[in-house]
Simulated scan of single mutants.
Amino acid sequence: MNVFLIGPMGSGKSTIGRLLSGELNQEYVDSDREIEARAGADIPWIFDVEGEPGFRNREQAVIELLTQRENIILATGGGAVLRPENRANLQANGFVVYLKTSVDQQLERTARDKNRPLLQDDDPRGVLTKLMAERDPLYSACCDLVVKTDKRHPRSVVAEIVRQLNKQRALSNPV
């Protein structure tokens, strides 16, 4: 079963994805790294040259391809849920986990990261608050499971996801 991780920047998608991959013995894929590999450029450069719409077009193409694969753990970018096509592909092809976190936790986790174009602003808290208001309903609407990550060790988050996946598998494959 594919597991797709969604949530805002700084929610732990990459960290949790790598750990979950090891725990479930499934390949880990990060959609942002895949976009960079295909473009031969980093995300800030793509934003500078193509703007957010150009980046979102690339993201949509990559998510469409990646969600067709089998037995992967996919960490998506924070804005992946903005496009209905992405939400549909995620929901149709795997178990979608929303890693939910507060704006305070996001600020703490992203404070020194210069690779986040949307945070290169004088008011990162304002930006994150606005993004959360816009995206939280989308994350919630397209997920199978919500896991709060604030002030939690990544291994405890992974353990919770594994427990829920095991319950899900038991429900879909009754003996």
Rank of each mutant, 00 (worst) to 15 (best):
K151H: 14
D150E: 11
G78W: 04
A75I: 06
N89S: 13
E70P: 08
Q91P: 04
Q106P: 06
L74S: 07
R169P: 10
R155Y: 12
G78N: 02
L65H: 13
T15C: 08
D104L: 06
V97M: 09
E27Q: 12
V103T: 11
I6H: 03
F55K: 03
R56C: 01
E34S: 08
L24A: 12
E23M: 08
P117L: 03
V96F: 05
L66N: 05
Q106L: 09
R155S: 15
L20V: 12
K130G: 15
S172Y: 04
N2C: 11
T129N: 10
D104A: 12
R87Y: 01
M1E: 13
I16E: 01
V97S: 01
D48Q: 10
Q164E: 15
N115W: 04
N57G: 12
D136E: 15
S14H: 02
A111G: 02
M9C: 11
K167D: 15
R69I: 13
A88C: 12
D113P: 01
A61T: 07
V147D: 00
R83F: 05
V146N: 07
N71K: 15
L66Y: 08
F4G: 01
P8R: 02
G79D: 09
L118D: 00
R69N: 14
F4I: 02
V146H: 00
P154S: 12
L165A: 14
V146S: 03
L66H: 02
V175F: 07
R116K: 06
L145I: 13
T149G: 00
V146P: 06
R56H: 06
C142E: 05
Q164R: 12
R69H: 11
E134Y: 10
